[in-house]
């Protein structure tokens, strides 16, 4: 019996093969990084079987990622023009659309969300990138407040590296919703995907690393981090934290992660 379902499962398996064979590493400063060597497992909600092993970050990994994001912010990304960022973000959107099928299938298996909804996840993610891409050229536009004697004006400047913590329910779409506006503004990002569904974050980081998206390559550092509460660092270089989290009850790991 070869139904549409069987075919989808077979396709998903092709895409998942790489995750089954190799542990998912951190991506720090544009490079694969095994970190401290510790891993955790991500499971399929369909039967709770292991899909992949994923690098478990700690204080050191977060620290390295934040420093890389700070360097990328200071030396390149914040110095780009809005028009340049607009072009790059549109290229990211193009690449997301090109891998829409793969993103949808992996998202569906990793989260358990029905494909009828996840089939649009990538398209919506790309739409988020396009929306914010088009706002990049005017991102630094502030207010003009002239008086009799002075020309007063404000400008808006990127605040710096942003820590982005995203939830497990529809991770790809929600990650783009946080990351795209930060990048458009000229900020860099340290992303901590949810432990229960971390896989599509890998695809997003690969897309951003493509040569066509080159200037963004050191920007979205993917960090799968679970930090011990007692030793979590207060990163002085990260200036803003954006989170989509549930108020309560939150799984313990979320509470830890939020302490960045």
């Amino acid at each position: 019996m070869s139904t549409a379902l069987d075919k989808s499962i077979a396709r998903a398996e092709e895409f998942l093969k790489r995750f089954r064979e190799h542990p998912v590493a951190h991506l720090i400063d544009g490079k694969q990084d095994a970190g401290n060597g510790q891993t955790f497992e991500t499971h399929s909600p369909i039967d709770n079987s292991v899909i992949a092993k994923v690098a478990r970050g700690g204080a050191a990994e977060i620290d390295r990622a934040a420093k890389a994001a700070t360097k990328a912010f200071r030396t390149s990304w914040s110095q780009t023009t809005g028009d340049h960022r607009r072009k790059i973000l549109h290229k990211i959107a193009d690449a997301i659309e090109a891998r829409a099928d793969e993103i949808a299938l992996i998202e569906s298996i990793d989260t358990g969300q029905p494909i009828r909804y996840m089939s649009k996840a990538a398209v919506r993610g790309a739409e988020n990138f396009r929306f914010y891409a088009d706002r990049a050229p005017s991102a630094n536009d502030g207010l003009s407040l002239p008086t009799d004697t002075h020309l007063n004006y404000t400008i808006r400047q990127p605040i710096g590296p942003v820590g982005v913590i995203t939830p497990w329910n529809t991770p790809f779409m929600l990650s783009t919703w946080k990351i795209a506006p930060a990048l458009a503004a000229g900020c860099t990002v340290v992303h901590k995907p949810a432990e229960w569904s971390p896989l599509t974050a890998v695809l997003l980081s690969e897309i951003a690393l493509r040569p066509a998206c080159h200037r963004a390559c050191s920007t979205p550092c993917t960090v799968s981090a679970r930090m011990p509460a007692a030793r979590s660092p207060s990163i002085p270089t990260s200036r803003r934290l954006a989170s989509l989290a549930r108020a309560r009850p939150a799984p313990p790991s979320w509470r830890r992660a939020r302490r960045r």
């Binding site: 549409a4 379902l5 369909i46 709770n48 569906s108 989260t111 494909i115 009828r116 569904s197």
Partner: peptide
């Protein structure tokens, strides 16, 4: 099954 196009509710994220 979440990949079945007819499915409206798939499995929840975690036990």
């Amino acid at each position: 099954h979440p990949l079945d196009p007819a499915t409206e509710i798939g499995p929840l994220i975690h036990p």
